[in-house]
Every structure is written in structure tokens, then in C-alpha cells.
Design a protein around this nucleic acid. Structure first.
Lengths: 234, 234
DNA sequence: GATCACACTTTTGTCGACAAAAAAAATACA
DNA sequence: TGTATTTTTTTTGTCGACAAAAGTGTGATC
């Protein structure tokens, strides 16, 4: 496939992680469609590696839930489970809250600097009307807040949820409008201020509202979309 | 090593999962000491499998954080990080709360039956003064509650945290006394009742108190222990 | 006696091959 | 024509081998 991938992986031990990261990105960016089959042989050719390191990368992805591997049968990219979306939203909202709250409690000056620069990147993406950029810089912004909170369990789960969110948003990003992202920039600013002030309650409240905002936005995209497909199926 | 392990894994595809589950248990039960090195060759002999399936099992364990694999160097059983214990307690407490709360909201009659039977198993372990049994049945009890809550993200994180807790408790289980386990039985009963009544606030409050109870118990064991080793280092 | 360089051993990451299992294709039969 | 059965092809799980790193031991040098 992509010739750039080849020959980049010829230092021992870098093979698996390169394959892992490449595939991970492609799954999150929907370059690999949910439900589509993954061919080990094909990947083996593409990365110029034998099937052994490819398989180890796939095992890692499976452990993260990004792919599903049916024993002795094909392995496929995980589907986005619209029936269980409320579980996702519930966990996402909770993680927004606890990470922002903890960031208010535990941040250092370095953390603030990093958060600020990522917020700036988000703002620039909004100015450019670069929807894909908005999605990924928004994710980075919140991961940085989580890291400032200093709880690896939350960071890990939140990262997973945000990346799953990226997949969902990519499905609907065409319908992004201009008003909401502007509003998010403001909400982010307020959150940063609450974190700096070490105001846990305010940080929690803002994160909660921010999460609700995003959740209802995604919900509206989905229901609008299912109305369309509902029409088609009549 | 253990001859029972051999030849049990001779159906295609069962190799990795058998190795994975066996090692996972041994790590959690501290049969494999934290920090000790893992020898692929040795495991290969023990399970009568080649190194390839062994490695895939190790990759899975690494993804779960139970082992650490340093590239081109040895892989070791993860250490228990006493410096970051507060992160662990914080996440554990939060998961106790949200899973119990969700169980109150979403449980079915089948869930209650399962939770009840596991609570009975816990009670019996307490009656037998079987500390190891108490640790594992307590874990199963709370996992069942989490499953009744129907949020796979919480179930996964909570399971991981409870199993990490099993490791820590095993370090100190000699100092278990009789009073607290009795108290836990009562607290469990109250939690079941709150869940049945679909009283979310009560479920949350009980879970919160229960978590605090357990956390402070573990904390007291650890500080008692570090006082001892503090004496030794003088 | 301690430090360094070099040979040697062990361990890890990767490879190509092969057999079991599933999927697909071909055939037989109603 | 449609279904059941056999054969062929593809794919997956496992194996033994080998080369690159890292670890270990030995001797030389100061």
C-alpha cells in the first residue's frame, strides 16, 4: 500500500510500536472503516515485516478495544455501538468532571503552560474552520488537563473515551456549524481560569456543563442522521 | 514446573488465553513477585508451547499494566507503586460509587440473584476466617454489582482496580482481623437493599462509606508495615 | 585492586514455514 | 433450481531457527 511505511521499521523493537500507532491512528481517523476486516498478510506486505510483529500490534489494539479478534476467524475493526452510546456518554461526562477537578487541585505551572498552548491550537483550528483539527486539538487539550490531574487511571480511561469520541465525531463532522466551536473556546477559557484558581467546585461545574454541551451536540447529529436513514428505509 | 499446565492447551487458539489467564492469576495472587523477571523460555517449557503464543499473552498482560516490558530487555512483573497509592484509592472510591449507583438504576432480577449468591459466598468465607477467600469473593461481589450497572467502561476499570487491590491486600492479609469483615457483610447487605429499592442516593452514600472504610483499612496496614521497616532501616 | 576492552553467553525480536481451521468453490443429488 | 456434501483455497495459530541486543565473564592495563 503506502510505500512510506516500508523500511521505516528496521530497528529492532520499533516494528510493533510503529504498526500499532499507525493502525491506531487510521482506526480513530476512520481511514479503516468500522467493521472492516483486517488482513495480516496485507499488513505484512505493507510494513515489510513478517506476520509475527504485526500480530503483536493487533493483540495490543484488541486489548484496547479498537479491534475485535474472533478466534480462528477474521479480525475486524470495532464497530461503533450506537445502542450502547449512553454508557459512553455517561463515562465521558464523569471523566470530564473528575479530570478537570483534579487538575484544579494538582496542577503545576508547567501544566498550565501546556494546557494554554493546546487551547491556543484549538482556537486556531476554530479560526481556520478546520473541523478535523478542532476534533484532535480538543482531545489533546483535555488530555493535558487530565495529566495535570495526576491520576493515571483517569488519564488512561479518558484518553480512550476521547479517542472513541473522535471516531464518532468524524462520522458527523460535515454537519459541524460555526456557533458551537466558538462557544467551546470560551468554555475552555473558563475552565483554565477555574483550574488556575484551584477552584474545584467551579472546575467541576464547568466541566460538567461542557460535557453536557458536547454530548447533546453529538446526540443531535445522530438523531438528525438516523431520521435521514429512517426515511430511506421506508 | 507444574506438569498440570502442560497438554491442556492443545486446541488451536486456546494456547494464548490459557497462558494469559494463568499468569494473570499468579500475578494477582502474588505467586509471581512484583518486580521479578519473566523468562519466556521457561514459560515456553512449562506450557509446552513455542515462544510465539507466550509472547502474545505477555503483550496482553502488558496492555493491562500487570507486567512491564522494556524493549530489548527483560520483562518484569509490575511493581506495586506505593508512592502513587492515592491515585489508586481515589479511582477505586469513585468506581465503587458510580457502579453501585448505576446498579440501583439499571439492575434486573437476575442481577440481584447473582449479587446475592456472591454475597453469600463472601459471608461464608468470613465465617471460615478464610482471608484469601474473602478477598476474592469480595472482588466478585463488587464486579457483579458493576455489571448490573451496565456500563462496560466502569466494569473494566473497576475490575482492574479491584484486582490491583487484591495484590495489595495479599501483601498484608496476615494482619486481617475479625471485626472489619463482619462489618463489611453488614455494609454489603445495606448496599443490596439500596440497589433493590432503586435508591440511587442511598446506594451512592453506602458505596462511598464502604470505600472509605476499605481504603482506611489498607492505609492503616501499610503505615503499620512501613513503621516496622522504618525501624529496620535505622 | 579497580577500570576498561574484548570475547562469549543468554535473551529478545523477527523470520519463513507448516498444519489446523474456516471460508469459498465445486460437485453431487433431489 | 435449490440444497447437501466434498474438494480446494485462504487464513490463522503455532513452530523452530536465526540474528541483533543486552548481559556476563575474562583478562589486560594503570
Amino acid at each position: 500500500m503506502d510505500e512510506r511505511d516500508k523500511q521505516l521499521t528496521h530497528k529492532r523493537g520499533f516494528g510493533v510500536s510503529t504498526v500499532y500507532e499507525t493502525l491506531r491512528n487510521e482506526i480513530i481517523e476512520l481511514k479503516l472503516a468500522p467493521g472492516s476486516a483486517i488482513d495480516e498478510q496485507q499488513l505484512s506486505d505493507r510494513f515489510a515485516l513478517s506476520r509475527t510483529p504485526i500480530r503483536e500490534a493487533l493483540v495490543r489494539l484488541a486489548a484496547e478495544g479498537l479491534i475485535m479478534t474472533l478466534t480462528n476467524r477474521a479480525t475486524i475493526v470495532s464497530n461503533i455501538d450506537f445502542l450502547r452510546l449512553s454508557e459512553f456518554f455517561d463515562a465521558l461526562t464523569l471523566m470530564y468532571r473528575v479530570t478537570t477537578r483534579l487538575a484544579a487541585a494538582n496542577h503545576t505551572p508547567d501544566d498550565i503552560e501546556k494546557i494554554r498552548s493546546l487551547q491556543k491550537a484549538f482556537e486556531e483550528a476554530v479560526d481556520r474552520r478546520d473541523v478535523l483539527g478542532m476534533i484532535s486539538t480538543n482531545r489533546d487539550f483535555h488530555v493535558a488537563i487530565a495529566q495535570a490531574g495526576r491520576n493515571r487511571y483517569y488519564v488512561e480511561l479518558f484518553t480512550r473515551l476521547l479517542d472513541e469520541g473522535r471516531r464518532i465525531l468524524r462520522l458527523y463532522y460535515s454537519s459541524f456549524n460555526d456557533v458551537l466551536p466558538r462557544q467551546y473556546v470560551g468554555e475552555h477559557e473558563d475552565m483554565i481560569q477555574a483550574i488556575i484558581n484551584r477552584d474545584l467546585l467551579q472546575a467541576d461545574a464547568l466541566a460538567s456543563a461542557h460535557a453536557d454541551q458536547i454530548v447533546s451536540q453529538i446526540r443531535s447529529y445522530i438523531s438528525a442522521d438516523s431520521r435521514q436513514s429512517g426515511d430511506l428505509s421506508l
